[in-house]
Simulated scan of single mutants.
Amino acid sequence: MREYFLGGSYMKKRPIFFSLLVFVACFILSTNIYAETNESVVSDGHSHEDIARGERFFKGLLPFDRKYSSCVSCHNLKQVDTLNWNPSAMDIAMKFVDKDYETFQASVLNPSGKKMEASHVNFNISEEDLKTVKVYLDDLAHHGTHPVKPTFNNLILFLFLGLLITWAVIELIFLKKIKLKLIPVIILLGAFGWQVNMIVTDAIRLSRQQDYAPDQPIKFSHKVHAGDNGIDCMYCHTTVEQGKSAGIPATNLCMNCHVIIREGTNSGKFEIAKVVDAAENGKPVEWNRIHNLPDHVFFSHAVHVGSGKLDCAQCHGAVEEMDIMRQESELSMGWCINCHRDTEVDIMNNGYYQHHIERQEELQSGARDKVTANDVGANDCMRCHY
């Protein structure tokens, strides 16, 4: 019976009925899912028109005679390359989604803190319009922002080159309409070479993410902390000299300063309040990892920083100048090998290298003028791949 309904003659005899049944089931399922996710906004008496109107006010499309800055001019909806100190639209939405309108209204029209007060000067919006903004933000908290659509430029170019190659081959073998045979040959070789270059380039980029700078749950600026305030890297990254990882600072460590400092010059109170809330509720901040290596690669900060005495900037760049932390170096195998070949080690005064007696004698006798990491086995395959 099961075979009859799922894989046998019934599907063959009733394909239209079966397809319609699947379509109706999918439609009902998607409708239920939408109703569940929309429950807190639409089922509370708000219409989709309210959400759309609130979105227009947030983006500054309404009112037409607006004399104040739009919400989106400060509270961005999409990730930006430079640090926007103001909370994003999603941050605001998540903060007020479970709060009533009066709390939201008080925060917008009667803000606390110097930064927010300065930003909301002359901000004048009617109560009804502000309510639709709250509805829009509540909807945003449940559904999120629209995902960025992927681009297919390289794929389109690759397919176009494939068409050129196909045409050139057909012309050379079958059509033979072009008298000057050099033209399709040049097109064939050029398009094929371009395709090969695209494949090689993308293959080399696999698992590499130079300049990767993801959005973080808290807008933490290394420029402010390490640069302007001169905080040493090892004060926060406490395991960098003894551990494989440099370590992510615990929220309690942040509170060593922020138990007093509750408002930032640039960020106001909003971002620091996230740190305070995490510390008070015992909920760790879920930072997004920036520097990633393939699983088959072993790397230890203890060896490089603790034993090798490398400076953090040698791999991570001028962190003290970065508002948004990014991956400075490509961290490829070639990059590591070249670094080992070029980086000198203090083999005479560093106890970590005391067993390299032969290299020490060569330095003392003048047989060599320097010792690099490569000379003491850093490029041995088993050091990183074991």
Rank of each mutant, 00 (worst) to 15 (best):
L164S: 08
I165H: 00
T166D: 13
W167C: 07
W167Q: 07
W167F: 14
A168Q: 09
A168L: 03
A168T: 01
V169F: 11
V169G: 06
I170Y: 15
E171G: 03
L172W: 07
L172S: 11
I173R: 09
I173L: 09
F174Q: 07
K176F: 13
K176Q: 11
K176H: 13
K177G: 07
I178H: 14
K179D: 15
L182K: 08
P184G: 11
P184I: 05
V185T: 01
V185A: 09
I186G: 03
L188S: 11
L189V: 08
A191W: 04
F192N: 01
F192I: 03
F192R: 01
G193P: 00
G193L: 01
V196R: 02
N197S: 09
I199L: 12
I199F: 05
I199R: 00
I199A: 12
V200M: 15
V200F: 10
T201A: 07
T201R: 06
D202Q: 11
A203K: 00
A203P: 00
A203L: 07
I204C: 06
L206R: 05
L206P: 03
R208H: 11
Q209F: 09
Q209D: 11
Q209C: 15
Q210G: 05
Q210V: 14
Q210R: 15
Q210A: 06
D211M: 10
D211Y: 15
